[in-house]
Simulated assay, not measured.
Amino acid sequence: MLTPDQFFAFLAAAILLTLSPGPDNMMVLGIGMAKGRARGMAFGLGCALGCLSHTLLAVIGVSALIAASPLAFAALKVCGGLYLAWMGFKAIRSRGGAAVGRAEGVVESARTLFLRGVFANAINPKVALFFLSFLPQFVAAGRGDANVQTGLLGIVFTVQAAILFGLLGFFSGAVGAWLGRRPRAGMWLDRIAGAIFIGLGVRLIVAR
């Protein structure tokens, strides 16, 4: 099981990542603004549930590395730390994140958009790489099975993403208008997220 420190530290980082302007949440906003809140919420829920496939891959990958060699698992954590730090530098240099676009074309059903969100997230190699880098650093040695911890962390990430994406879809019109009036808001969200991810990456690299 996860300790309270593990849970809340991971949850805070996951929420910040989910709220930072990026392709997924900007698509949720765009679809919600153009096609209605129900479709925006459906697409967002699909994107969130697509994370479960990456959780499974992370559990399998971490399990294989631990079985093969503790040194290999340590190498994964160091590489993951470097990847998170690189993501942080990119976020800090961002000029405000992705723009909110209005999805146009054929009006798809909420079910179709839900499935599209699941598929788009599940086949995204960048999300898979992120999960392999991000989840293991919150796995605490000596606090139970690493696979169980990794799986629980992935479920926590999925649940918070589903809630936040659902809220983004529901309030898409108001949120889109707020971001339109405050173009620098996205930039500061990116900078805060970037600083936190650099810190997480450095901690992962130097931790024993």
Rank of each mutant, 00 (worst) to 15 (best):
S94F: 12
G88S: 07
A99E: 12
G101K: 14
F119A: 14
F114G: 02
V127G: 03
V62N: 00
G96H: 05
A64F: 02
A91F: 09
L76S: 08
L84C: 05
K77S: 04
G101E: 15
Y83A: 10
A74E: 13
A110P: 02
I92A: 05
A99H: 07
N121T: 13
V62K: 02
A74I: 00
P70K: 04
I123Y: 08
L65T: 09
R93E: 09
N121H: 13
A75Y: 04
S94W: 12
C79D: 00
A74N: 14
V62H: 01
G96C: 08
G81T: 00
A74F: 12
G117N: 11
F73T: 01
F119N: 05
L84Q: 03
R111D: 12
C79M: 13
A72Q: 02
I66R: 10
F73D: 03
A98Q: 11
I66G: 02
V127D: 05
R102H: 15
K77N: 11
A74L: 07
A99V: 07
G80L: 03
L82G: 09
F73V: 01
G97I: 09
S69V: 06
V106H: 12
I92R: 12
A67Q: 11
A98H: 07
A72S: 09
A122E: 01
T112A: 15
A67M: 07
K77D: 02
F89V: 15
G101F: 01
A103Y: 13
E104V: 00
C79G: 14
L71G: 09
V62W: 00
V62Y: 01
G97H: 05
F89R: 02
V106F: 06
L113M: 15
K126T: 04
V78D: 02
E108C: 01
E108V: 04
A74V: 11
A99Q: 08
